[in-house]
Design a binder for these strands. Structure first.
Lengths: 334, 334
DNA sequence: ATTAGTGACTAATACGCATTAGGTTGACAC
DNA sequence: GTGTCAACCTAATGCGTATTAGTCACTAAT
């Protein structure tokens, strides 16, 4: 800016005013300064900006997962991609970190905020008993919880959530209509908010219809556990006629396990995957799946965060209910 | 630091010396200052650090892929996870951005460097005719090219590469030994350096053995194209007896397509996937696959970058040759 | 003719840290 | 008793930007 000022024959402050669209310079000068800045290829130093109180122009994203669990999950990359799209428009950077567990994640938030490294964060995988909202509130760090529970609102936090309960109800509806009475839900990680929501909803739907042979089993989302649980429940005396898997990977592994046991899909057992991806069309039969737009989910979350950074109020936003794509893995109960 | 200085009864400079392990303060004072800093929960402002010439304590990572291609690729998340592990030790942040194409990617590098947002970058998906190394050289932006060609070294760039040529040679060796003479390589994106390396190596190996019915077909890595190419080549008059897929997703889709056409794996056609993941054990038959440690790949790249940032020389480092895991999808040629 | 006001600009300061140039004290040698 | 040196510490400056407090010339109002 010093150089620009010299070349344009004005003071440094005038340059600042001109480039930031503030009053205090004539239109003519402003234009001249703009031209010079352009010629000199000037870009504002984010460090200096941050130092003089403008914020870091960066938002943080922490993924608390052991490295080897990261593998086959298409959800996060798509989510991040959607987040990016919105952030990039406003030239906001995305600071990304992978950590082992929630405690580490909290430590990262603390450090980032203390170091003025981020202006806000996006929180994923909310849990039923989650220390993070309290921490963020305490720090005053603007945040959007992705997939959070709509009830439990913290004053300063925005929440973007998908209606898992509604989706689960519609899936059960569909299966019930097909004559299924014995249903097993191979759920994801226990303790995750959306896992618990799905489990609760399934239980409620079962109660409502008087179904007693309906259960949920939590897993670690891995193909191994998906297959193991499938083998266990299908090996029982009154095996379920429908299986709901909390992700596509487990559904795939489950179908493989079922075939090995001599169960044919969907003749003997119907399968629904909670998460649609190319995988679902890569096995025979093609898997019926709940599809949601993860990229759009990311966009929505990012938009909420930018709104928060602009001083807007914390909000709770719902994204569209996941839609059931009926393919070949679901059919009438035997 | 001002507060710390006041509480400890010393000057601000003394605090700086004490906390940065520089000479100029007594051991006793240093300890006292440390204690006070601890009590006050002080964390250095990265913005201020960056401003006073210490660098941004951040490295950049740009992924140039259309949003919808990101889905099913386990490689990048694992890579990033490995990168993280090394960066986190040194409290370096990872600035992540997804863009549409290479031109945008270059623009991001320019901006980041001009804004002093990053100290270095990690470059992925190098191409045969790639503008990025030249740009990075020109900017003087420290960088590590991941998966780059070992030949084409730019003065300032480090390169971390896997020996695709060696791996391809060993795969062809194995298939040849099993009696395969007609081999099709369903390759990845044309123009990517490693794609071209694999194609060249396959051609060379074929020539060396006098095989004429060997070819590579480039794709966009998607399951759709993988299946389409599979159908096309298997539908020909003298169909190949072995298929090499450049990723796991296409291999899976290929196997499905082959079954539909009445080809049994591995009796009629052998299949090798270039990238191992849970997917390969999720179909019957389990897929033989080239396995490499993507997390370690990331670690290595990050280590090279930190070395570069410490003022070390640019180097070219090779990671271990991918190893062929023989499962059930490869067998003797019919 | 003085005052109040306004538009266009400059000078000065702050942000939080690192660093460099000084300053003071005490020990030691001559 | 003067000079030298080392150890320890303080004062001052700079990094690049935003902002606040002036300054100056000129116009409009009293």
């Amino acid at each position: 800016m010093k150089d620009i000022a010299r070349h344009a024959g004005v003071s440094q402050s005038a340059v600042s005013f001109a480039l930031n669209g503030r009053a205090g310079v004539s239109e003519e000068t402003r234009e001249r300064v703009r031209r010079v800045a352009e010629e000199l290829g000037w870009q504002p130093s984010t460090a200096a900006r941050a130092l003089s109180g403008e914020g870091a122009a960066t938002v943080g994203f922490v993924l608390a997962r052991p490295a080897d669990t990261l593998g086959v999950d298409s959800f996060f990359l798509q989510l991040v991609s959607g987040i990016q799209e919105v952030l990039a428009e406003r030239h906001l950077g995305l600071l990304f970190q992978v950590v082992e567990d929630i405690a580490d994640e909290c430590a990262v938030y603390r450090r980032w905020w203390a170091e003025h490294r981020v202006d806000g964060v996006l929180v994923v995988d909310p849990r039923t008993d989650d220390p993070r909202p309290d921490l963020l509130d305490e720090l005053g760090l603007p945040a959007v919880v992705i997939g959070g529970a709509p009830e439990e609102r913290h004053p300063g936090l925005s929440t973007v959530w998908a209606d898992d309960a509604g989706a689960m109800a519609s899936v059960v509806d569909g299966l019930y209509a097909l004559g299924h009475r014995r249903i097993v839900h191979i759920a994801g990680l226990a303790g995750l908010a959306h896992t618990e929501r799905r489990i609760r909803t399934l239980a409620a739907e079962a109660r409502r219809r008087g179904l007693t042979e309906v259960q949920s089993v939590t897993t670690d989302y891995s193909d191994a556990e998906g297959a193991a649980v499938t083998r266990r429940v299908l090996g029982g005396s009154a095996p379920p006629t429908a299986l709901i898997y909390d992700n596509d990977v487990m559904a795939l592994a489950g179908v493989a396990a079922a075939s090995e046991l001599g169960f044919s899909v969907p003749a003997d057992v119907s399968v629904v995957a909670w998460e649609d991806s190319a995988l679902c069309r890569m096995v025979k039969p093609w898997l019926s799946a709940l599809s949601r737009d993860s990229v759009e989910f990311g966009r929505t979350a990012a938009r909420e965060l930018t709104a928060l950074l602009d001083g807007g109020p914390a909000r709770t936003v719902r994204v569209p209910v996941p839609r059931l794509i009926e393919r070949d893995s679901t059919g009438a109960a035997r």
